[in-house]
């Protein structure tokens, strides 16, 4: 399976990655080669086989709805690149 460079640009956009024009070709080749490895999956019939999401088929545990963690905003925001008045600063979103 061969991807087109346009598809690779779209995948990069969906993944919020910026890729330069100079390496679009390289990514297109690499990703196409990897997708080719996936082809052999098609040769196996999987009708009636349930998808396996967890090795022990475990489901999410429930716990009582009580507070278990304390607020550590100061500590957690200390590692943020840009914080003002306890808020994360990002470029303007709404005009």
């Amino acid at each position: 399976m061969t991807l087109k460079t346009e598809e690779v640009r779209n995948i990069a956009h969906l993944a919020r990655l910026q890729i330069n024009d100079s390496n679009v070709e390289q990514y297109t080749n690499d990703l196409s080669n990897i997708l080719n490895v996936f082809k052999q999956m098609k040769l196996h019939d999987t009708t009636n086989i349930l998808p396996m999401a967890h090795p022990m088929d475990a489901t999410q545990r429930l716990r009582p709805d009580v507070v278990s963690e304390t607020n550590q905003r100061e500590k957690f925001q200390a590692v943020a690149p840009d914080v003002e008045q306890h808020l994360y600063r990002v470029p303007k979103v709404i005009e």
């Binding site: 996936f38 999956m41 098609k42 999987t46 086989i49 998808p51 396996m52 999401a53």
Partner: peptide, 11 residues
């Protein structure tokens, strides 16, 4: 891809 892989994972 993803669902197919999850099924084969069970095999």
């Amino acid at each position: 891809y993803y669902l197919k892989a999850q099924r084969l994972r069970r095999l």
